[in-house]
Amino acid sequence: MSLPGLPNLLALAALVAATALAPLSVGLLLGVDRRVTAAMQLRAGPPILQPWYDLTKLATKTSLPVDRLAASLLVAHVVLAAGAVALVLAGGDLIAAVLVMGAARVLFILAAGAVESPYAQLGASRELILLLISEPLLLLVAIAYGGVAGSFSAAAVAAAQAPVLTLPTLGLTLGVLLAIALRKSPFDLATSHHAHQELVKGSTTEMAGFWLALAEVGHWYETAFVLVLIALASLAAPLVGIGLVAATYTVAIVADNTLPRATWRSALWIGWGIGGTAAVIALVTGRLFGAGGL
């Protein structure tokens, strides 16, 4: 076994830095999101850095007694979620990354449901529904990428020619996934920043201070994961990726502001109906015209 060379060390440092920065940039994005939402409602919104302030404040609150089991589940959740993002950033296997992210979210659901509060448990069961919508979609996306690139490794997908361009409908699936990650209408079943109802805040009911901050970071990683997937698909044409995120945002914010919260059934149907169909179409076209068979 040889010592890692300097280039390898540098690459490792870059990976760690990128993984650490990923959620922070999602925080900024959420800051913009809150500003835009406020503007839609004719309010003055918070500073763009607000999510960072909130996170720091939560993390430095004097801690309250917590459930040991829930706490360790939460830690594991964040570690796995960060791992999934790092895996993609390192050019690793997409399918594995999707599964790791799924596992991370299962841990979060367990953490939310580990406590006695019926609100937290209801919230956890709604998180589970969201997971049921997004995990199959993520897998379909990974498979479609693989169909184009001829390999499931993120590095190969990055090297391939812009799968989003060749698979037009895949953008729709990614949009649905982003809306789910951001908990936008109609996927705002389980959590929402401004809701005044315990039911909606359910999954984080029993979390406070540092632990709530951890849950938040995990959520940021989840969002970062989808954003990284979008970036991966639009390396050759960054504008397409940016356009996709912007379009998703526009649709989601308009939906948020003109519709009441959907029930979980309709969320399920919209998610699978739109996202799933689009993914399957993309998959088939990828098969027919892709670079290599699987």
Binding site: A38, G45, P47, E198
Partner: peptide, 22 residues
């Protein structure tokens, strides 16, 4: 919290759970 006074510009969020409040 409503548009005219927009308390959110100071970072105010109305939370239901005392353990999350400041």
């Amino acid at each position: 919290l409503m548009p005219r006074f927009s308390a959110e510009r100071f970072g105010v969020i109305n939370v239901g759970d005392p353990r999350q409040g400041d």
